[in-house]
Amino acid sequence: MAAMFSQNPLMNGPNYSFNDAPRTAAPEGARQHRFDPYTDNGGSTLAIAGADFTIMAGDTRLTSGYSINSRYHPKLFKIGGTTADQKDATIVLSVVGFAADGEALKERLDAICKMYRYRHGKPMSVKACAQRLSTILYQKRFFPYYVYAILGGLDEEGKGAVYSYDPVGSYEREQCRAGGAAASLIMPFLDNQVNFKNQYEPGSGVGHALQERERKPLTRSEGEILVKDAFDGAVERHIEVGDGLQMMVITKDGIEEILLPLKKD
């Protein structure tokens, strides 16, 4: 009853013909079209570590939906050279997923590696660079770079090193890794051909008596053939993969870049 005679306009008294109280929440069935800041630009990447080299590879197609935006858009970047042409770089980054984030990530990592070189007078080791990349990715944990990154180079002992990442910075050093649209097509092939999974010594018995085929690192030419075969397979079975294959082979003598054609259909 007290409210009836209250002079407080915010209470439902007899005073006013309208309710002055401002609404705080958006109306029911909000008329909002939210902007989606992400897209998937397709494509696939691949990296294999050898005894004294690392092969990084990626296709060069850039898609959005069913359209091919570009037939030559590299996914592999040399990181941390002294100058913009990256002539003396020793590390390669591959990014696949959302292309704009990939570009931003590449430029940030490159700037950081250049600053490191300037401050310490030596290039960053892959191990340090790998940890730093993880930190960069995790810094954007709640608005992530939508990219699957792979970092490749040679470790302190001169052995091939491949580090693979998820979009928020979990990372791991591996022998080989496929990323992007056709990762699920390429990775099992790599497991079998690089790590010899499900391969056994002929005639070694059955069940537990089976002996696994002995694992030995690939030679460079074997690796390059494997990469080409993996991508030729992916091109057949995934529409977002094709046009060109960009490979970078990292050895103690530097980084060699190879461009091969893939099917354009």
Binding site: P37, Y38, T39, N41, L62, S64, S67, N69, S70, R71, Y72, H73, F98, A99, A100, E103, A104
Partner: peptide, 16 residues
Amino acid sequence: RGTSFTSPSLATGFGS
């Protein structure tokens, strides 16, 4: 979204 690319020919929207 800041996605950028180059090509010998380009078209936006329906043009693509």
